[in-house]
Design a protein around this nucleic acid. Structure first.
Lengths: 267, 267
DNA sequence: AATCAATGTCCGCTATAATGTACAAGTGAT
DNA sequence: ATCACTTGTACATTATAGCGGACATTGATT
């Protein structure tokens, strides 16, 4: 019926005149990232957009209650309407309940921190998290965007793409790990394929130096990985209980997979 | 430092060429209302927008993951990104936790159904609800838009507006009650003023014929009504326990009011 | 077969939205 | 007092986004 040109979702930076809609969502994403109200001018500067455009868009978004004045001094932040729209999404694809139950179960059996993760555009994000029995400082907060190659889940979340698509999909600079080293895309892709075959991926976290990460895929009706369940454990614990932990994760993911309540992956 | 032109929020309907952004959010609101995936063509027809425009916008929104393919046959629905944005909003104005606690408390003390309500544009909506001990069919679902004059909470939610602003704000046809009768705007306004003075409004529901509704305001730091707590009880129960219920509601609202976690009302 | 309605695509026209630029006002440092 | 900087507003220009309308498919109904 159609085949989208596969625009790589990237808001394309080279365009001379950006489209209002794209700019608008760029603003929203930026605010989400900042996690705090900002002034239009500041937004314009930071996202590298013309001031006049940003002012106009911000006013439009305010009118629609997509943005709200917040924090005084003309600062704006994400608005109530987004909350309502998000709630409507959640209601339609009601994965949160089962998801919460799955995390609960994992946390109960393993006493470790467990997470439910997805892709947001071309980044990885933690959608829900359940702290383990002895909580320790986890590097990635809920809702924080993280480069895909930095994470165990990342190996599974792009498994439905071809090699070339993976290359095109992930921003090149995201292959630079937090320690400065570069991860060879070919190596990453090999890990992706292996992870998909085994239905799991585990490694010592790249982001910190004391945890071991486990990830297993959550599949939609078409057996595509739309999300992951993962588990973050202190390294010794992780190594020691490896098989038990993996089994637990897989049991949980099995229960989630294929449910109609899991949102399908487009394309 | 500035005074926004105060654009009266009206999405201006007379415009010849609608702005893409407005159309886009019109689509999103429409989908929220429908609560199910729809085809672009159908959307265009129902919201009375040019087909070509809607197709273009839908594609743009798909690219940004604001919409997702869902339900097959090219149907689209609200997308994951909206969920993420909504979550970010919720985190910033973290009223849900206290709110949930307040509802819990009310439900526990009264055994009746309690709700947390706000304005969504120029409509009333139930943001959260806690079913009472003996749940009965409540007319208004969570997330459903309802005309302001139909609800007890409506009397409080517009209390910060002047008479004229109230008239301008509420769509004229919303003064027609579900039974077909017209509520005189002047009468409504009088009720608004009284409700605000007493810090409460109660009446036999207009929407159904067997419940009595109680509403009390939740105030922000500027003492403006940004939300309401309300309680829906069978009529006899409502009349009988009137004072007790009101007291309970007011205690709960007191705890919520003025918290920084309550989102401020713009303008 | 023929007709009609519903759906998706394509393309040219033009109203207008995005932009650059100039201006004004406030703030703080020197 | 002067400069540098940040923030918000106003306006003219032009690239383009929204629109109308033609066309192609499909599937149901006659």
């Amino acid at each position: 019926m159609e085949t989208r040109p596969l625009d790589t979702a990237a808001p394309t930076s080279t365009a001379k005149r950006a489209r209002g809609l794209d700019r608008a969502f760029e603003i929203l994403d930026f605010l989400r990232d900042q996690k705090s109200p900002m002034r239009p001018n500041e937004i314009a500067v930071q996202i590298g957009a013309p001031r006049s455009s940003v002012y106009e868009l911000v006013n439009l978004l305010l009118r629609n209650e997509i943005l709200e004045l917040a924090g005084g001094d003309g600062r704006v932040f994400l608005g109530r309407k987004l909350y309502f729209l998000g709630a409507a999404y959640e209601e339609q694809f009601d994965f949160t309940r089962e998801c919460e139950a799955a995390l609960e179960m994992i946390a109960h059996e393993t006493r470790e921190t467990s997470q439910f993760c997805m892709l947001d555009g071309n980044k990885y994000i933690v959608v829900r998290m359940k702290e383990g029995a002895r909580p320790f400082r986890i590097s990635s907060d809920v809702g924080q965007s993280v480069p895909i190659p930095w994470t165990a889940s990342g190996r599974l979340l792009v498994a439905h793409l071809s090699d070339q698509e993976i290359i095109d999909f992930i921003p090149p600079q995201d292959f630079q790990l937090p320690n400065g080293e570069w991860l060879e895309p070919a190596v990453f892709i090999r890990e992706v394929r292996e992870a998909w075959l085994k239905g799991e991926f585990t490694f010592d976290s790249i982001v910190d130096s004391f945890t071991h990460c486990f990830a297993v895929p959550v599949l939609d009706a078409n057996r595509r990985c739309v999300a992951t369940l993962c588990l973050v454990a202190p390294r010794e614990d992780g190594i020691e209980n490896r098989e038990e932990y993996l089994l637990c994760l897989k049991r949980a993911s099995q229960r989630l997979s294929g449910q109609t309540s899991v949102p399908p992956l487009s394309r």
